[in-house]
Structures are given as structure tokens and as C-alpha cells.
Simulated scan of single mutants.
Amino acid sequence: MNVPDIRVEKGHAGPEEVAAITAILLARAAAHTPAPTPAHAGRPRAAWRRLEREPGFRAPHSWR
């Protein structure tokens, strides 16, 4: 039994349209480059701050 790998959920796509979408997806998958590795192997910096190190007052118009 021949089961297709790609299925059209809505509408009617012809074999040419399915082939075009498949070609685009395969080209994008082949062009994907892995993310560059960081230059240092240290621990990442925390995205949060400790409250005791923050100043006690922030201006009401400050962006934080």
C-alpha cells in the first residue's frame, strides 16, 4: 500500500503543488545552518537580578 508522506488537510492540491511544497521544505531543511558555538565555555549570565542589589527607588518614568 502506498501511503503519501504529505497530506492536504483542506482544499485540493494537485501533484505539482505538493511537489513544489516538498521541494521548498527540503531546500529550507538543507540550507539550515547550526547555531555557532560560543567562544567561551563559562556559565551563562542570569537574566534576573537580585533584589538586594537593586537601588531602593526607581523613577516612575523609568522603563524597567
Rank of each mutant, 00 (worst) to 15 (best):
G11Q: 04
H12W: 05
R58I: 04
A19H: 07
A31W: 01
A46T: 13
L25D: 00
A29W: 00
A30K: 07
R7H: 09
P55Y: 09
R7M: 14
A39F: 05
T22K: 08
G14I: 02
R53S: 12
R58L: 10
H61S: 15
P44R: 11
H12Y: 05
T37H: 01
I24L: 02
G14R: 12
F57Y: 12
A47K: 13
G11L: 04
L26P: 00
A39N: 03
K10A: 10
R7I: 15
K10P: 00
T37Y: 04
R58V: 14
P15R: 10
R58T: 11
R28D: 00
L51A: 12
H32N: 03
P60V: 04
L25S: 00
P44Q: 09
E52Y: 12
T33A: 15
L26A: 05
V8M: 08
V8R: 10
A41D: 15
R28V: 01
E16N: 11
A46W: 07
I24C: 00
I24H: 01
E16L: 08
E16S: 06
E54H: 02
P36C: 03
T37C: 04
I24P: 00
H61P: 00
T37G: 03
E17M: 13
I24G: 01
E52F: 07
A41N: 12
A20T: 06
T22Q: 11
A20W: 02
R28M: 05
V8T: 15
A59D: 15
A59E: 08
G42S: 06
E17K: 14
E9D: 11
P15T: 08
H12V: 13
A59L: 06
A13E: 09
R53D: 15
P44W: 06
P15E: 08
A20Q: 12
A41M: 06
L51Y: 11
A29C: 05
V8N: 13
R43S: 12
A13L: 10
A30L: 06
A46V: 13
T37P: 00
G42T: 06
A13I: 01
A29K: 08
H61Q: 14
K10E: 10
V18D: 00
V8S: 07
G11A: 09
E54P: 00
P34M: 09
R45T: 12
L25R: 02
A31L: 10
A23W: 01
P60T: 06
L26F: 00
A30E: 07
E17S: 11
A39G: 05
F57H: 10
H61F: 14
P36R: 15
W48S: 13
I21Y: 05
L26G: 01
G56D: 15
P55T: 09
A31R: 08
R28Y: 01
H32A: 15
A23H: 02
H40E: 09
R50P: 06
T33F: 08
G56P: 11
L51C: 10
A35P: 08
H40K: 04
G14C: 10
T37E: 15
L25F: 02
P36L: 09
A19S: 15
R43L: 14
R53K: 13
W48K: 09
A27P: 02
P44M: 05
L26Q: 12
H32W: 05
A20S: 07
P60K: 04
A46P: 11
H40Y: 06
A41Q: 08
G14Q: 02
T37K: 15
P60C: 03
